[in-house]
Design a protein around this nucleic acid. Sequence first.
RNA 1: GGGGCCUUAGCUCAGCUGGCUAGAGCGCUACGUUGACAUCGUAGAGGUCACUGGUUCGAGUCCAGUAGGCCCCACCA
Length: 891
Amino acid sequence: MSRELSSRYDPSDSEKELYREWEGQGFFRADEKLAQDPYVIVIPPPNVTNVLHMGHGLNNTIQDVLVRWRRMQGRDTLWLPGTDHAGIATQNVVERELAAEGSTRLDLGRDAFVERVWEWVREYGGQIIEQLKVIGCSCDWSRTRFTLDEGLSRAVREVFVRLYEKGLLYRGRYIINWCPRCTTALSNEESEHREHDGKLYRIRYPLADNTERFVEVATTRPETMLGDTALAVHPEDERYADLVDREAILPLVDRRLPIVADEFVDPEFGSGIVKVTPAHDPNDFEIAGRHDLEAIDILTDHARISDEAPEAYRGQDRFEAREAVLADLDRAGLLVQIEEHRHSIGHCYRCGTMVEPRLSLQWFVRMEPLARPGLEAYRDGKLRFYPQRYGRIYEHWMENIRDWCISRQLWWGHRIPVWYCQRETCGEMVVSREDPDRCPECSGSLEQDPDVLDTWFSSWLWPFSTLGWPEDTADLTVFYPTSTLCTASEILFFWVARMVMAGYEFMGELPFADVLIHGTVRDHIGRRMSKSLGNGIDPIEVVQLFGADAMRFTLIRGAALGTDLQLNYEDLESAFRPGRNFANKIWNAVRFALPYLQDADAVDPAERDLELADRWILSRFGATGEEVTEALETYRLHEGAELTHAFVWGDFCDWYLELVKGRLEGERGSDSRDAAAATLVYVTRSWLRLLHPVMPFITEELARRLPGEASESSLVLGPWPEPDRKWRDAGAEHAMEALQEFVATVRNLRSEYHVDPRTGVTVHLQRDAGDLEHALAVEEKGMYRLAGITNLDRSAPPADGPGASAVLRAGAEVFVPLSGVIDVDRERTRLQTEVGRLEDLLAKTSARLGDEAFLAKAPEDVVERERQKERSLAEQRDRLVEKRRALGPTG
RNA sequence: GGGGCCUUAGCUCAGCUGGCUAGAGCGCUACGUUGACAUCGUAGAGGUCACUGGUUCGAGUCCAGUAGGCCCCACCA
């Protein structure tokens, strides 16, 4: 059995090697031929440009725990990995690289640029995949996909064509969100609203037929007035009834603006007159549609003033132009008022630039018909969210869904499969699965749409495009629909909701039933971890310092369902110490046990003559296993980790190992020793399994060292300790509880000499325990050494029924060492307050028991518990009072 | 403007369907290096569960309101 184990666990010794072994054996590969009750997760594909951060760490650890657990349960498990081409993000990265070389994508030209991005992706992309292995992710790497793969590209094109054929896709000029830095359209979801302290300017426009009279409008964006084509008032606004159908003159431009009446105008806001800028405001665009107004786009792609505006402003940046316009208006005496105004403005989710609402020709998906089945699925309870509250957010969004702008003015991505005939007289548009050569109408030459599709237009197909769709593959049959989707809340709309829609539309089925949404990783003062703030923690560094298991445990235990996780990025030690210490604890517990164990001990404990401690730990394990399984089933992973931790540290290490130490020293072949050894092997392997999904490396490492048939096999393939009532033993648990309570009481008493009136057990307090304690442990034959410090007689096994008296033979002697010297005065005070506290509790309890309403209405077991509590409290109090007396009067 | 969430020990948080003498980790205090573990052990201090009402035999847990904080959605210029 191998080399000596060090007293400290060093994860770097084994993690890499174990992972290589697991992967090499094909443990993570799903078998589409087995198809036994498959459990499937598709990874939220990280961007190819990404390097692993703690958010990924959390997200993927959660998925790995679920997947490993299900795999151990014997289900055919597939965790499908891959990356996303991330249109804007990736294009930006390469453009920055070009900029550093003093070049631009325009210099290179489209084909060369795209080739350059591919080179980048091949060279640096997908680093994150290797990093996922370092933290232990058990993905089926043989199925790794990329959103720009050939297969996935085919899926994208198929979807585009189908939607078009179904009339769910249209091209049109609408107001979209335009990022002037990325020079592309964005969807509504890609425009992030942020609060701004802006200003509201009141400007006067003279009337055309009476230039002495002015109307006043309010605007937050005065530069857009260059594109005004009308003014609007509310139809029922009496103040301005005489203005309707007259005209105003647009200052600085000298354009005549019709004054229209439109219900949209809120008479309460500002002056009650709105300037209408159809090309730069969604509402104004709507108004323009109703009144047949012209739209003038006064901005260029880079948000500079275009040639549509007066020459004086052309070429100015939008913010420069604002100042210039204001100055000119002011000079003309037309700027009447400036007030502070707080409002929210959209920003590009990739580069943070203020988004410009802009009229533009784009492709859109009609979403309402797609949303309907997804909405029903939620309302029917087929689609479930953990935590539930996200369901309501999803529902609200789906109910108010708006059409999706999917064309992007980028080069990196899926090219839109649409061709336009170049012959003006023809004007045919071809939407096709295959690249066409010539116009089918007139045989004229065709030009493909220059735009690419929104990255999310490939992501929303992920749960089935990765399985081979639109081909009818075995994978698709077996693994779709998937089981759980695990993600952060930020991409609920971007991705989750849309996958549901695509799932129904193209597969006729929900892509997953459970959506697990975890929190955000934040630093110790609550800020989101990010590169720009410099408060991120590199998971790989954490793995190197503390081990993957320690990191995983820390993340899982910290991430309660629906809550954010705070980690101190300045003090990694304090953030990850508990995880590392736990790993060390496990290591040492097993290290201690190993020398006492041999193959012969690995027999089923059921065949041994078990003692109380054995039956107790088996029972406790049974209960824990059941609770952990239940916690995992409801996605309360943190609770599973917590429960396992409490069992291993509290029950197994603190009590069972201590109870069993003496017995293990006994002679092989003796019933007591063999029972202890068999139980020890069995329970240890069992809790290693329970912990394996969270801490795969150390558990595997240790399980292999245990004797027994299973020592050759891997924990990876299970089995999972399924709930098994066989070992549950309420009697043993009660007896141990009594014992633990007794020991606690004894420690509390700190008496030099004490006899338990219930059992006649005598307690001695050893003042110089240092020398005595260990001697006592071995000196008296048949003594338990409890929790490291206490000796209890074990010679009276519970013959007939459990109970404290069965454990503690009347007249037995218990030795408890005294740590340090008691300060008598302090002790008296402590006892005094303790007695006071007990009296209060006792009074409350008695009062309750005297309450007829309580006795009448409370359930029987609650009343009984109250009675027991009353008795126990009285006993405790009496003992302490006596102790207090023994210490003598206050000095 | 609409919707959602949070407020429990010095810190970060658990506490599911109401029964709690309210827990964990970290931190703090005292003692301890005794053969699994000082990456440890033992003992301990520390909480009017934000506030006010209500329902109930019983509320940290359910309901209403108040205060403070957070998030999402939204076209009031």
